[in-house]
């Protein structure tokens, strides 16, 4: 007996599992272990995407990992991904050279509510490589600067030498219509910026907390501290958005790996509202 409402009108392949082929068009080394790749589809045009979404990148014979999109529409028919070498698959992807071919599925997931934040103050809080998934949202807000009230970018990183997108941060900082604050965990006296953790910057730039929407991305501990600091500063938890990370295999909500309480990070996230996850976020080993 057939299942009710089976949606099988399309060709009978498992195509949600099958990657499209993308050629590596450019590789830029960001840090000793981090590169940014520009990927163009071998045929056709790349699908549209929203800031905060991710793709599954496949290195031939090695495996597949979820990587956030770190570029914006100015990249034309290309996907921009910033990848850190932390394992077999990310290492293989980081070692790819222009001309190499990677598999790509996506984009997947729920991104940053950039449009919904129009009319508000926007605070981006990034930690380390967490700046990469925020970058498309920052670029979109800056492109439509007039639609937002005050905008701040708070960035925490390990030390001045390991600073992702340093030139971009410097160019953003030159603008008069956004506030950019960078803090590092460790520095020598040559560093004239902030030393300390990124939540500590929040009181320095807090605008009207009732009008602020915060987009937060970084290691989970950093996001927990940041969300707490934002709440303490008066930002309502439903106006705080975090980009979560869990193990992902299928990216389409049917392999079960990325469960985070009742949610699947791949399809209910990765960007999730703090008020909806605060209880779960505080639990160990969830």
């Amino acid at each position: 007996m057939a299942p009710p409402d089976a949606r099988l009108e399309e060709p009978h392949t498992t195509d949600a599992f099958v990657p499209d082929l993308y050629r590596v068009e450019a590789v830029r080394r960001e840090l000793s272990d981090t590169v940014t790749l520009e990927l163009a589809p071998i045929s056709g045009t790349r699908p549209a995407y929203a800031p905060g979404q991710f793709n599954m990148l496949y290195a031939f014979g090695v495996g597949e990992i979820a990587i956030s999109i770190s570029g914006n529409h100015e990249s034309g028919n290309r996907f921009i991904h910033t990848v850190r070498d932390v394992g077999a698959v990310s290492g293989a992807i980081c070692r790819s050279a222009p001309g190499d071919v990677l598999g790509l599925r996506g984009p997947f997931g729920v991104g940053w509510p950039v449009a919904a934040a129009e009319g508000s103050d926007v605070m981006f809080v990034a930690g380390g490589l967490g700046l990469a998934p925020l970058r498309p949202a920052i670029l979109e807000v800056l492109e439509n600067r007039a639609r937002y009230d005050r905008v701040a970018i708070l960035f925490g990183t390990r030390n001045p030498a390991d600073m992702l997108f340093r030139h971009q941060l410097e160019s953003w900082r030159q603008r008069l219509d956004i506030e950019v604050e960078v803090t590092v965990d460790h520095a020598d006296p040559d560093w004239h910026g902030h030393v300390g953790v990124v939540p500590g910057l929040i009181p320095h730039v807090m605008f009207d907390p009732a009008e602020t929407v915060a987009f937060v991305c970084g290691p989970e501990v950093m996001m927990r501290f940041t969300a707490t600091a934002l709440t303490a500063a008066g930002v309502a938890s439903e106006r705080i958005h975090l980009s979560m990370e869990r193990n992902m295999k299928c990216a389409i909500g049917i392999c079960g790996h990325c469960q985070f309480g009742p949610d699947f990070v791949c399809k209910d996230g990765p960007v999730m509202r703090y008020d909806r996850i605060a209880e779960i976020l505080a639990l160990r080993e969830i």
Binding site: R158, D185, G196, G218, P219, V221, M222, F225
Partner: peptide, 11 residues
């Protein structure tokens, strides 16, 4: 608390 977070070297 901030120092404890810094100690974790999360990045």
């Amino acid at each position: 608390n901030a120092t404890r977070l810094q100690l974790l070297d999360v990045y």
